[in-house]
Design a protein around this nucleic acid. Structure first.
Lengths: 233, 233
DNA sequence: CCTCCCTTTTTTGTATACTTATCTGTGATG
DNA sequence: CATCACAGATAAGTATACAAAAAAGGGAGG
């Protein structure tokens, strides 16, 4: 039951942020802890306990939890409490496939709509990432990877679609942390990014989409292994 | 300011549902009113007023509003109240394009994965809809249309993707009510459904996706007109 | 020894009270 | 006459209190 009782000092100081809403602070904090895996699926989220942790009452905690429920990060069982959403292996696969297809969809549209400036920026980012690959800097590459994909979303010039893509990517984040952590996935990923950019440069949206799908599928191989380690229902 | 003060009898009786949560009841009710357009964009949603309407206190109302904010149906301006989300014409276009692309994505996957039983059911639904077209029964066709598309989502055998598709479709529902209400759009829609089913029957996922995109695009012509009538920012 | 039922306890759902920030209106001042 | 400032009003954010349902625990009966 004390899964939330972190050993480090309580983060009460968040309450004196001034402007921000307590419920938002709590929501963001919990979302982060779930996404990064510090709160594991099935963990019960006691309202009072969380409230104490943040030096808040139950009210803002409840609001945060309800909002998280809407995004699917937690599961609310009426009158029976809230738990971190339990995700079956099948569902992770489904989420991953959806992400891959949405990425493909985005890159296809982006191919047709990207501006020269955006294209140049993507290319620059891509070339800069080569250094991270050489240095084997996983964290830096992880961060670059996210920005690279988000730059593609933006290049669709469809704000709504970009938001959807970011949202789904965030929800999947909990399960992809280890995806690049083995073999020469880093180098492979870099090469795949290059293939995607090449197809975009040729204006071949369909090919860019295929490259993206392949890129995501390759990344999923590691994911599959990870899921099996998780021993999910 | 009395946009919420409906002239009909107050729906206080929802509170004695027994099992259901008050906040859920309020959320669903408000979502419906926003989706069907009874609550227009920009309408301020006063917590006390809504509470009175449902015979509830502010607490469950707040929870409902926060959840709606997560789905983008309302906009929360911290300490300044909640309003029905104001949607620009551009954003509706973006939402519509995203929907069209997601539908195309779904139908492509569905083509490869649909079971004989599902295929048969889709075909039966499609044939039954011919009667509605002949009779010009708009409401019945509207309902059939939703079920037809949702049956395709299900045929992807990707529960997560189906949920996403349903969610986006629901968010767009507010703006598509009038889409089929003119010309012989009904007959055209029916024919386009036939084309989609034909491509699926041949196992040509890409063609099915193209047909679906065209189908959605055609539907959007009416939408464009509707948006211009709306006089949005 | 196991099972069922009743009591106790805990926790959720809702209401109400309090605090604080924003809005509004009036008046003073340039 | 316009603008700014201050005070009151209003409504949002949060805390606390109460009600009710579910979980937990214990005792009686089989």
């Amino acid at each position: 039951m004390d899964a939330l009782q972190s050993t480090e000092a309580p983060d009460r100081d968040v309450s004196d942020d001034g402007k921000s809403l307590l419920s938002d602070v709590i929501r963001v904090a919990l979302a982060d802890e779930i996404a990064t895996g510090r709160l594991k699926p099935g963990t019960p989220l006691d309202e009072q306990q969380i409230g104490q942790r943040f030096g808040a009452s139950r009210t803002p905690v409840r609001e945060a939890l309800r909002q998280l429920a809407t995004t699917g990060m937690v599961e609310v069982r009426p009158r029976r409490g809230v738990v971190v959403a339990t995700v079956t292996a099948e569902r992770i696969m489904d989420m991953f496939e959806t992400t891959a297809e949405m990425e493909a969809m985005c890159v296809r549209l982006a191919t047709y709509r990207i501006t020269p400036i955006e294209r140049s920026r993507l290319q620059t980012m891509h070339e800069a990432s080569a250094e991270m690959v050489r240095g084997g800097d996983l964290d830096a590459y992880d961060d670059f990877n996210r920005r690279f994909h988000e730059a593609i979303y933006q290049a669709t010039h469809n704000q709504f679609m970009a938001e959807q893509a970011v949202g789904i990517r965030a929800r999947l984040a909990a399960f992809r942390r280890t995806q690049l952590r083995h073999g020469d996935r880093l180098a492979t990923s870099h090469a795949e990014h290059g293939a995607i950019l090449g197809a975009m440069a040729r204006g071949d949206g369909e090919e860019a989409a295929r490259s993206m799908r392949a890129h995501m599928l390759n990344a999923s191989c590691a994911l599959t292994r990870y899921i099996q380690d998780l021993d999910l229902p």
